[in-house]
Lab assay of single mutants.
Amino acid sequence: DHWHVHIDGERIRLDGASEEFIRTLEELIRRGTDARELKEIIKEYLR
C-alpha cells in the first residue's frame, strides 16, 4: 500500500507504513502535535 500525508504543505510518502502507524499518526494529528515534530516521527519510522 502507498500512503502519504500532507504536513505543512509538504507531501510525505509513507511507503510500507503499517495501518497501526497510520492510526498513531492520525491520533497525534488529532492531539495537535506540531508539524515539525510529526515530520521527525515519520523520518524516524521510515529509517
Rank of each mutant, 00 (worst) to 15 (best):
R30M: 11
W3Q: 15
D8M: 04
D1P: 15
R31A: 12
G32P: 02
H4G: 04
G9I: 03
G32N: 07
K43W: 12
I29M: 09
I42Y: 03
D34K: 11
T24I: 11
E44G: 07
L14R: 01
L38D: 00
E44T: 03
E10V: 06
A35Y: 07
L38G: 00
H2P: 10
D1T: 08
E10W: 02
H6R: 06
L28V: 05
K39T: 07
E37I: 15
K43C: 10
E19G: 11
I41V: 10
A35T: 13
A17I: 09
W3R: 15
G32T: 03
A35D: 06
R47A: 15
I22L: 10
L14W: 02
G16K: 07
R11D: 15
D15C: 01
E10T: 07
I41Q: 04
R11K: 15
R23S: 10
E20C: 03
I22Y: 08
A17R: 02
R31T: 12
L28S: 04
H4L: 06
H2W: 09
G32A: 04
L28A: 10
H2R: 10
I22Q: 07
H6W: 05
R23H: 09
L14M: 06
R31V: 10
H6A: 10
V5H: 02
D1Q: 09
E27Q: 09
E27W: 04
V5P: 03
L28H: 08
K43M: 13
E26N: 10
H6M: 14
A35S: 15
I7R: 00
E20H: 11
I41L: 14
R23V: 10
R13T: 15
E26R: 10
H2G: 05
L25H: 00
I7Q: 02
E10F: 04
D8Y: 00
R31Y: 06
I29T: 03
L46S: 03
A17G: 05
H6E: 14
I12A: 02
S18E: 08
E37M: 12
H2D: 14
R13P: 13
R30E: 08
E44P: 02
G32D: 04
D1Y: 05
R11P: 13
G32I: 04
A35E: 08
A35K: 08
R47H: 14
T24M: 14
T24R: 14
E19C: 08
L28N: 03
D34F: 02
H4N: 04
D1C: 05
R47L: 09
R30Q: 09
R47D: 06
L46M: 13
K39R: 13
D8S: 06
E26H: 08
Y45H: 14
R31W: 06
F21Q: 03
R36F: 11
E44R: 09
E27K: 07
F21M: 07
E37F: 15
G32C: 03
T33P: 02
